[in-house]
Write a protein that binds this DNA or RNA. Structure first.
Lengths: 340, 340
DNA sequence: CTGTTAGCGCGTTCAA
DNA sequence: TTGAACGCGCTAACAG
């Protein structure tokens, strides 16, 4: 005989209370371990809760208490990119430490989608937002639109708004990589990069250009290609550069997609003696098992997420209005040898 | 002059209504585009909403309507693993199509954490759950504990509970890979795998063992190592196998971590003439740019997520109680040549 | 077309 | 120690 109420209607505190002949308050108190309740009653309540499989409704509770939802919104451009999934790992890790959960939003790099996603997350009551912006327009992330919900930008600094951000040392990392190539005697260095409209695109190019300048080398436009981070485009661009009579003796790539493209172009290239060196931003798994040596600018993507989430929780906890902070994650230059 | 109410208290519908001298119902109707409201009033309300930056509280709305939260919980063992982040991509993709969001939960492969995470997600009102189980104990995912919340297991079939699941063709894929090695003349094939306690571990071993049996080859225990999927352990195991006087002429690895370990072991190995062949489950980026040829069992991890989410929404929409379904994602065998 | 009443599930407040 | 009334923000159901 099934004495449980209709299973399509979820159990409420009242169901538990009625079965015990007590008020909902008694159940509520027992559930939250609040003092001021008889130990015997407590046990009776908890036993019934377990028997019935009752679960409190955190949303209703939050509505009543007005407390934090313990929910963080994470808005990324493309979760398929390992950088962003690692970022998510870091955010999640810190959130769990603070008893919070992560709600995901993917924008497909579309600013309009970003607006909608941010709005939806706010309407769902997130306590804070970590956003990898899809464009330079951050107006929908400003204080007047978000009221008191804190935001942290990742991988890109705020434009015209006052919020925290976590950046990667795009400039320094790229400069170091370019210097390494110069140290090895390269003077004609090609750059396969992202469009200047992306923060990372302009910063990484700046690192490249400054390293050349410091070595007294002029930037040769024929050796620079600034397209979207697509490995097919990168491959074509690299191929074209390498077909020049005075082609670059080294390539510097602005992200892992470009590195893959360059690797493909180098692989396809007829072996005409002098090998072309390669360095790139972002580490690559198995990089030291490739058929050619590769120098990479490596950094901890999960750390970006951890830092962003930490800034969020710190701000949440602080009563005094902190002024906007900026954290930069360091990069390391790694030389991957070739096997044998 | 700031005429807005105290910003720490979020705006409610009442704030909007009072400013307009209308009832909250009028605001509510205007906001939801419900018919039965004057066009002029509607515009007035919407204008005020925009001016104030009011945002409805979806949680309160959901509490009142009792409608779905349009929220799916995704519970994975380890988001850092590309397989699971790709799974998340697929789940998110389908959710967005249905107007839902994804709430993340990571278990670190700990069954106790899994229980807690699942409970928390349910208390937060998710409409459904996609779970990559951390163990064989699925009792906390059964109908009596979840009431009406549908669950789909990913990568592992349900044990003692009746729920949908999406699997990868672990058995068929591994058998195909092993056959390929046998076709190439190998008779001594080493297996670097996962523990039998994992579903994928036992299925992939089963594929290996059957392929051998079909070729009339007995399984040699010295050629089998079944440890956790850690590349360091895999490397040691591979090294030990290759040190045998009659060492395997080919290795078959049960997942990408094992493949990496095997690659490392093969790289370190003194070149004693005959090269050792390698095949493995899971594709590897840049596999065709390695220093040795690699055969992989490839499949679309995002498709696993898409299928899981689809099953969830289908079940949600269907009134009749569907019986448990099982979807298997196909695998493809890919031969990655070595460059040049 | 608009407003009033009531109540979703829960917790605060105050009285018993 | 326990319970009743009330309200969190919103909307269904029913007035007018």
């Amino acid at each position: 005989m099934n004495t449980r109420p209709d299973p399509v209607t979820p159990l409420t505190m009242r169901d538990v209370a009625e079965r015990l002949g007590v008020s909902t308050m008694t159940v509520s108190r027992a559930l939250r371990g609040q003092r001021g309740i008889g130990e015997a009653t407590r046990q009776r309540v908890l036993a019934e809760v377990a028997a019935l499989g009752y679960r409190p409704n955190k949303l209703a509770r939050g509505l009543r208490t007005g407390g934090p939802s313990e929910l963080i919104g994470l808005v990324v451009t493309n979760l398929a990119n390992p950088f962003y999934s690692q970022l998510a790992v870091g955010v999640e890790e810190v959130c769990v430490r603070y008893g919070a959960r992560v709600m995901l939003g993917s924008t497909s790099e579309d600013p309009d989608v970003e607006r909608d996603v941010v709005t939806d997350l706010l309407e769902r009551g997130v306590d804070g937002l970590v956003v990898v912006p899809a464009s330079h327009d951050h107006s929908h992330l400003g204080a007047e639109r978000l009221r008191d919900t804190p935001v942290v930008l990742a991988a890109s600094p705020p434009m015209d708004i006052d919020v925290d951000c976590v950046l990667v040392d795009d400039f320094g990392g790229t400069r170091a990589a370019c210097r390494r190539l110069i140290e090895r005697g390269h003077r004609r260095i090609g750059f396969l990069g992202l469009p200047p409209s992306l923060w990372t695109g302009s910063e990484r190019f700046r690192g490249y250009a400054l390293a050349l300048e410091e070595a007294g080398i002029a930037v040769d436009e024929r050796y620079v290609s600034r397209h979207r981070g697509d490995s097919t485009l990168a491959r074509e661009a690299a191929r074209a550069m390498l077909a020049l009579p005075d082609h670059p003796t080294a390539l510097l790539t602005a992200n892992n997609r470009n590195t893959v493209g360059a690797l493909l172009a180098l692989r396809d290239r007829p072996d005409d003696g002098e090998p072309v060196a390669l360095a790139g931003f972002d580490d690559i798994e198995l990089a030291d098992m490739l058929h050619l040596p590769l120098t990479v600018v490596s950094y901890d993507a999960a750390e970006v997420g951890r830092a962003a989430a930490s800034l969020l929780f710190e701000r949440q906890r602080s009563t005094a209005p902190l002024h906007p902070r900026r954290v930069t994650i360091a990069t390391t230059l790694i030389d991957h040898p070739v096997p044998r």
